[in-house]
Write a protein that binds this DNA or RNA. Structure first.
Lengths: 335, 335
DNA sequence: CCGCGATAATGGAACGATTCAAGATCCACT
DNA sequence: AGTGGATCTTGAATCGTTCCATTATCGCGG
């Protein structure tokens, strides 16, 4: 009695397998007494449908694949939560994949999702995989870009205006009287480039201000710490008076490095002002509460699922680009 | 040409479907020239196996289900990462479910995993679902408890000695000369009860020390903040001189509440010492770097998958209980 | 030149749920 | 009692893969 199948249930209830299936999927097509009898058999035997068989039949699974750049970044877990909640409303689940700044991992997840014939794919792309995504869609798997717009508008996308966000951050620093700004970040993703571009635009309006780019190998606390230490190691007159970090993880790393040093530590914001990006929960709890650029993370996830469902319902629907505006959150680290 | 199946590949390569299958699963049973020809056909057609069909055939999926109490807690994402990595080595993936202190959600995920005929279930249980888990196993789905021991040792489990952890934390506070200790936490999970019990044991060795239990509705930053505010609202002589928070999220909330208040704020650790639990990455970056009890989170996840694989390979193998020891990490918040 | 063993390749039967056309049953009404 | 129509139920076909028992092929020694 290891596995119970519809056949067993049907036998027990004295009906055909077709009827059992109807009881579960179209109860209106079955008389009340039969429903009751079948239901009883299901309960008695502890029958659980086999998802694989259902999926095989209708060609697609009830799972949405989500590939993010870094699961350890609370911004992405928040996006995932938003997506999960919205998906649950539609009876779907979300499988979370983590590309971790690796083209290979990213590709592996797409393979996996394609094998699983997922209901759709939400992805915050790391490498340029437009062709790959196009193929996915051609095979009937809807794709929605997350936290990124589509270059040629051929995919639906949900994103935040990163250029505007970068501008907001840099303008805020300039308004606080800072003039030697350093942008700390790296990893070749669009978001970072856009934020840097926004900062450039802001700085270009101030002839006496400069913008320096300190590149990091990743967007992590650790990478931020290294960058912070490199700044600390400079001669005092070579240091920036403000740092704009590509995200809050980096900002927190920078902050740790700047302040932890027993003797030669710098003061934030007096010596160096610091602003991050994402406004994760922990930003407000940092050594010095962190100014940041807030993104509506959960909403991004929800919206992405909505666009996905729209495309799944009608593959011919025109792709739509949803762009949210970021918001400046000022805390102690910049004033 | 929407979907390409083995049949199409077979036709293109001029062989039977069985041979195509053999090329993919038992290449040694097929001549080199045929392998090449079939491989070419696969590439040309862009064939991708249908997971549902494979699963249906061999009865179980290549996915491990993991149910955690709170995905937003970095401790659990770290556990998940560890599990994912180890699972990937075995060619398996991990689906992450989030019970969020809800019996219903927990149960929903178990239903889902059972429908998916997952390879196994890793769970950090919220409610008492021993019977449910037993049934899962009876149906051939291995179960391993995570961050929790099995009451009757009938399940394999990977956990950390929470009583010892609680003792470590409280003893440290006592050594720092604190005598009025408050334990802040809640939610009816074992971990919390054990940590409290450990604290009790430590305090009971000091006749002049007291332990108070401040219950919270959840283990979140928000709940911690509320608890912190309630402490702040007390008359000064009614306040504890040390707080042991059930986890770092709660601790960070408490910390925010104690310090944020413009005027009446307290100093940590001078007025109140504070220690958390888990030692998440953000603990060291807090307003006041947080002392904590470290758990080997990624290792827990890895080990859990290993026990799972052992049980999957041989269901008769005796369940084993792996218990790790926690480690005290002292930072500024307690000294 | 036959037959033997080994190696390759084949074809069809599962796996379990769903669907759908066709058949069975029942009831009301003439 | 017979008929029409509505409501239920049935059983076979289907999804795409893997497994396994057969059959085909080949080389080689007798």
């Amino acid at each position: 009695m290891a596995v119970v199948s519809v056949r067993d249930v049907a036998e027990r209830a004295g009906v055909s397998v077709g009827t059992v299936s109807n009881v579960m999927n179209h109860p209106d097509k079955v008389s009340a007494t039969t429903v009751a009898r079948v239901q009883a058999a299901i309960d008695e035997l502890g029958f659980i449908r086999n998802d694989a068989a259902r999926q095989l039949r209708d060609g697609r699974s009830k799972t949405i694949g989500l590939v993010v750049l870094d699961v350890r970044n609370p911004f992405f877990t928040d996006v995932a939560r938003g997506a999960e909640d919205r998906a649950a409303d539609a009876g779907l689940t979300v499988t979370l994949g983590n590309s971790d700044d690796s083209t290979e991992r990213e590709s592996t997840y797409l393979d996996l999702f394609e094998q699983q014939r997922v209901h759709g794919v939400l992805i915050s792309p790391y490498s340029d995989i437009t062709e790959r995504l196009r193929r996915l869609r051609q095979r009937g798997i809807p794709v929605v870009l997350v936290d990124r717009t589509s270059d040629d508008l051929s995919f639906s996308s949900v994103s935040v205006d990163d250029v505007a966000g970068g501008r907001l951050a840099a303008e805020h620093l300039l308004e606080q009287g800072r003039r030697r700004i350093a942008f700390v970040g790296g990893s070749m993703i669009r978001q970072v480039a856009d934020r840097l571009e926004g900062a450039r635009q802001a700085v270009s309006g101030h002839p006496d201000a400069t913008l320096e780019f300190i590149e990091t190998p990743a967007l992590s606390v650790l990478a931020g710490r290294d960058a912070g230490n490199s700044v600390l190691a400079r001669r005092a007159d070579q240091r920036p008076d403000a740092i704009f970090a590509a995200n809050d993880l980096v900002a927190m790393g920078v902050l740790q490095a700047l302040m932890m040093q027993g003797q030669g530590g710098l003061r934030v914001p007096q010596d160096i002002a610091l602003i991050g990006y994402d406004d994760i929960d922990f930003a407000s709890a940092a050594v010095v509460p962190l100014s940041s650029i807030r993104q509506p993370s959960a909403l991004i996830g929800q919206t992405a699922v909505e666009l996905l469902l729209a495309e799944a319902a009608d593959p011919e629907v025109a792709p739509s680009q949803v762009v949210f505006q970021p918001e400046l959150i000022v805390r102690a680290s910049t004033q």
